[in-house]
Design a protein around this nucleic acid. Structure first.
Lengths: 329, 329
DNA sequence: TTGTATGCGTTATCAT
DNA sequence: ATGATAACGCATACAA
C-alpha cells in the first residue's frame, strides 16, 4: 500500500508550484486556465485528496468538525438529537464526532479531553446524570460550548432545555380537567434535573387546581419499567389514585404493564415513544421537540464559529401535548 | 481568546527541550523524575493539551478516528449499529465520525470524499439504497473498508450481513408449521438487497413445505406503513391468506393496523421493534443481532489497522426467531 | 537521559 | 498570475 499523493506530487506532475495547486484546490480565482486544466488532470490522474487534518493545524485553521457527547445512542431521545445536529452540520460542511458517556461522569470527562485533543471546532454536551468534573476547572481557551437537555453553570456556554416543567404542568392540568383529583406521579429520582422540573410542573398543576399534594401517590423510585409497573400496581390496588402522570418513557411503559392487570386509568406520559400508537386507547404524551433542540444546538455553535459573539443564553424549547385518548377516564 | 498552548510553551515553561516534553506526554519511561515533575507542573499550569490532529499528519501517524456512513440515525436499526461500533471503538481509543446518507447516492459519495479527506483511519459503510458512485473507481490507497448490511463488490473490503434469507425462511416455516398454507409476503421493492434475500427465504420455506407460490399474495409495494396496511387489508378482505410474513418493520406495523379492522391472522415480522411488546398477542419477529454486527465491523477494521492482513471475507450474522404469540392462529 | 535538527501536508507571506 | 520560503504542532533520527 503506497502512500497517498500530496500537493507536492500534484505540483510536480502538473509542472507548477505547490502554492498554485493550493490555490486551485481552495477554489481561488486568480489562476491561469491552462494551468488549472493541467492541475485538474494531475489531481485526477494521481487520485489526490486534500488532507484536512494537515490543513487544520495551520494558524486559524479549523477541523470542520463538531464534538458531541450524549448519554447513549440506543436511546431514541439521544439518537434524535444526534440526527438533528448531524444533519444541520452536514449541510454546512461540518462533520460530527459523537460519543456516548453512558451517563458516567468519568467517561464523560475522558471524552471531553479526547475531543479537545482532537481539536473539534465546538462541543455540544449532554451532561451525564452522574456528574463529571467541574467545568469551571477547564483550561482556556474553550471552544464554543453548548449544554443540551440539562443546565450547567459555565460562563460563555449556551444552554438548551425542553420546557420540562411547563409540559408536565399542562399534562397534569389536562388530567385534572377530565375529572381526576388524585393524579399519581410516577418517575425517577428527583436528583435528576429533568425529574425535578417535571415534578415542579406537577406541583404547579395541582396548585392551579387547588388540589393538595399527597406524597403517598408520588413515586420517584421508578428506575426501570418493572419498578414503574409495580409502583402503579400498588397505587391501583389501594385504589388511591384516579389518574397517572408518567414522568418519562419507562414510567409510561410501566403504567401500561400495570394496566394490563388492573384495567386502565387516565394516563399521560412525558416524552413520546413508538409503542404509544399501538395501545387502545393510544397513549397521550408530552412531546419534546427533539429535532428543534438539536438543530438549535448546531446553529448556535456554528454561529459562534462564524464570529457571532452574542451573550450566552438559555433556550427553553416548548413541548407539545399530544392527546390521543389515554387522558380520558 | 488566546491561542492554545503547545508543547513548545510547555518546554519553555519547564525549562526543558521540546523532545523531553514529547516523551513525557507519550508516556515514555526514560525520563528524569525531577524533569517529569516540572513538566507535569507546566502542563497543568498552562492547561496544555495534545494536538492529535498535528500528531496525525506525521508519517505513520493515525487519526484514531473511524468513519461511519449509515442511512439515517433516526432509524433504530442504524442507531443500534452506530452505538455498537462507537462503544467498541471508544474502548480502544478510537472516536467515530458518523454521518447519514439519507439513502442518497450523491450524499453518500460526498460523505465518502469528506471522510477520506479527513483521513479517518478506516471506513465502515452502509451502502445507500440509491446506489452511489462505483467503488472500483476509488483512487488508492483505500483505508480498511467494511460494507455493512448490504454487499458491494470491492476488492479488499470485508462485508457483514444479517442472515436475511435464513431468518425469513425460519419465520415462514414457523407459520406453516402452525397450520398456515397461504402466507402473504408483505414487503418493499425487490430491488432492495435485503428484500430480495428475505423473499428468497420466503420462497425456500414454501418450497420446503411443498407449497406453491402465489404471486397474488406477494406485495412488494409496501413502502410505507399505510401501503402495507392497505395491502394486508385487501388480501384479508378477499380472504385469500391465512398468515402474514412482514418483511420489515413498516410492514409489521401496517399489518397490525389492518388487523385492527379485520381481526388478526398469524403474523411474524422481520426486524424487532419496540411496539412489538405492547400488542396482544405480542408480535413475533426475526430479530437481527445488531450489536454483534456493529461490534464485528469495528473489530474487523481495528484488527486490520493493527496489521492483520487476512483475506477479506463476507460474514453472515445469524438471526433469532423470537416467538411471542402472534405466530399462532 | 536529554537535546538538535528535520519533516509531515498544508496555507500565508512576500516577492517576482 | 505565479513561486520560493516559512510556519503550524508534533515526533523521529541521530547526536551528545
Amino acid at each position: 500500500m503506497t502512500d497517498a499523493p500530496t500537493m507536492n506530487d500534484v505540483a510536480r506532475d502538473a509542472g507548477v508550484s505547490l502554492k498554485t495547486v493550493s490555490r486551485f484546490v481552495n477554489g481561488e480565482t486568480n489562476i491561469n486556465a491552462a494551468m488549472a486544466a493541467r492541475i485538474a488532470e494531475a489531481i485526477k490522474a494521481l487520485g489526490y485528496r486534500r488532507n484536512l487534518a494537515a490543513a487544520s493545524i495551520r494558524p486559524g485553521g479549523t477541523s470542520k468538525t463538531l464534538g458531541l457527547i450524549i448519554g447513549d445512542l440506543a436511546n431514541p431521545y439521544y439518537s434524535g438529537l444526534t440526527q438533528a445536529i448531524e444533519g444541520y452540520a452536514r449541510d454546512r460542511g461540518y462533520l460530527v464526532i459523537s460519543a456516548s458517556s453512558d451517563e458516567s461522569g468519568a467517561q464523560h470527562d475522558r471524552l471531553v479531553d479526547r475531543l479537545m485533543e482532537q481539536r473539534t471546532d465546538a462541543l455540544i454536551v449532554v451532561p451525564p446524570r452522574d456528574p463529571g468534573r467541574d467545568w469551571s476547572s477547564m483550561p482556556s481557551p474553550t471552544p464554543p460550548l453548548v449544554f443540551l437537555d440539562r443546565p450547567l453553570d459555565f460562563v460563555g456556554a449556551d444552554v438548551i432545555l425542553s420546557d420540562n416543567s411547563g409540559g408536565a404542568r399542562s399534562a397534569v392540568a389536562e388530567l385534572i380537567r377530565n375529572g381526576a383529583r388524585r393524579v399519581a406521579f410516577i418517575g425517577d429520582a428527583l436528583s435528576i434535573y429533568t425529574m425535578r422540573e417535571r415534578y415542579a410542573g406537577y406541583l404547579l398543576a395541582l396548585h392551579d387546581a387547588g388540589l393538595e399534594v399527597d406524597d403517598d401517590i408520588v413515586a420517584t423510585n421508578a428506575h426501570s419499567r418493572e419498578q414503574a409497573a409495580s409502583a402503579v400496581d400498588g397505587l391501583m390496588l389501594s385504589s388511591r389514585i384516579d389518574a397517572v402522570f408518567a414522568a418519562n418513557n419507562r414510567a409510561s411503559v410501566g403504567a401500561l404493564l400495570a394496566f394490563r392487570e388492573h384495567g386502565r386509568l387516565p394516563l399521560i406520559g412525558f416524552d413520546d415513544f413508538e409503542a404509544a400508537y399501538f395501545t387502545t386507547p393510544a397513549v397521550s404524551v408530552v412531546s419534546q421537540d427533539i429535532s428543534q433542540m438539536g438543530r438549535l444546538a448546531a446553529e448556535i455553535v456554528l454561529n459562534r464559529l462564524s464570529g457571532s459573539s452574542t451573550e450566552a443564553t438559555t433556550h427553553i424549547v416548548p413541548t407539545t401535548l399530544e392527546l390521543r385518548g389515554s387522558e380520558l377516564p
